[in-house]
Amino acid sequence: MRLPTKEKWVWLVPLIILIILWQFIAVYVVKKPEILPSVTAVIFSFYELRNYILPDILVSLLHFAMGMTSAFAVALPLAIAMGWYDTVFKAVDPIVELIRPIPPLAWVPLAIAWFSLTHFAAGFIIFIGAFFPILIASYTGFRDVPKVLVETGKVLGCIGNRKLIRYVAIPYALPSIATGTRVGMGVAWMCVVAAEMFGVSKYGLGCRIFTKFFPWHQMDYVVAYMLILGLVALCIDRVFRHFVEGKLFKWKKGIVK
């Protein structure tokens, strides 16, 4: 999407207004940094925390990657089976629907019991969070493959399910899989903070907020790390969209935009 240059920068206006408003309220209205730190204090804390930020981001990304890759690796084959074979769907769907509503946080005790206080425990919580969005969106994609495309595949020589899945179902379902992955990444990032609250490691964005800054009421540090959490997630999403949606799904243009 190409905007005229004037519109390209409109987003800056509300952002600047918001920052000015925040600074004004913090300094002249609230006046208590432990309730609302000022913008300048937050910016200064980035400078003070400069040696911690990178290791914390890397550890959080490690947890995130562990959870996401394992969720993807388990959800995708299951989604193919559930989406393609109706019997599998009927057999497995009740279990999925039973486990799905359990909040990932409720898995924390089990995660710690199974993996003790390791990176794997955090990865597991994130796995739970990312798994279901990927699974549901993907199997919906497989179930929606139009009959006429399947039959076209058959008439053109796709004998057997394996070829049909490979040449017809997977390409058709890819956009749904991508959407599920994107939603899953959002949930996974939320779970990063939750998973790190319980001291599974000494580093990590969530860990730092809850175990270091919050007990000392260092709200300027907390807000700085909140902003980092937002920015990292934004970057991940942008990179994903750039590589996956922009490059892989040109053919979808006619359908969605």
Binding site: V155, W251, G254
Partner: peptide, 12 residues
């Protein structure tokens, strides 16, 4: 076979 409805693979 040429089908009654459009049957091209949209991703190809």
């Amino acid at each position: 076979m040429v089908f009654q409805e459009f049957s091209l693979f949209p991703w190809r």
